[in-house]
Amino acid sequence: MIDPKFIGYRSPACTLEVEKGRLRQFAKAIGETRPVCVDEQAARQAGYPGLLMPPTFLFCLEMDRPDPYGWFDEVGIPLPQVLHAEQGFTYHAPAFAGDALTFQAVISDIHTRKGGLLEFVVQDNAITNQHGQAVAEFRRTLVIRHG
């Protein structure tokens, strides 16, 4: 069982660069074909400083932090038993290739269901860009399956 004392646990803040090659790879992986996401000229014509980041890529960028599953070990989350239960984003400003985004993550809830067979860990991320502007928040809910 995961100790509820980890509610409030903060991962170290992490700043990650949005790389355009990475955005193109991601676009290919999900079948994204909007020109503003894959063609720099189209992005600039749209008035953007670089390729537009698709809406779910924030989650992927966060996984580029060094040792992305490190907090699992600290909190006691067993990787083979984990599934992604829910994911939510609230958007404030678009993000582009060339941005440096800072992620601040805190565990906001830990609870059980089905008599302890399922354990849920909720982590909230606040994301800001290099101008100090709020870009988004995202909430990741993980479920740990016991038995």
């Binding site: 698709p54 779910t56 599934l83 939510g88 609230t90």
Partner: peptide, 14 residues
């Protein structure tokens, strides 16, 4: 995309 205010999902089956 700039008009999307929020977007959330629940993964109910594999």
């Amino acid at each position: 995309q700039s008009r999307i205010r929020s977007f959330e999902t629940r993964f109910t089956a594999m």
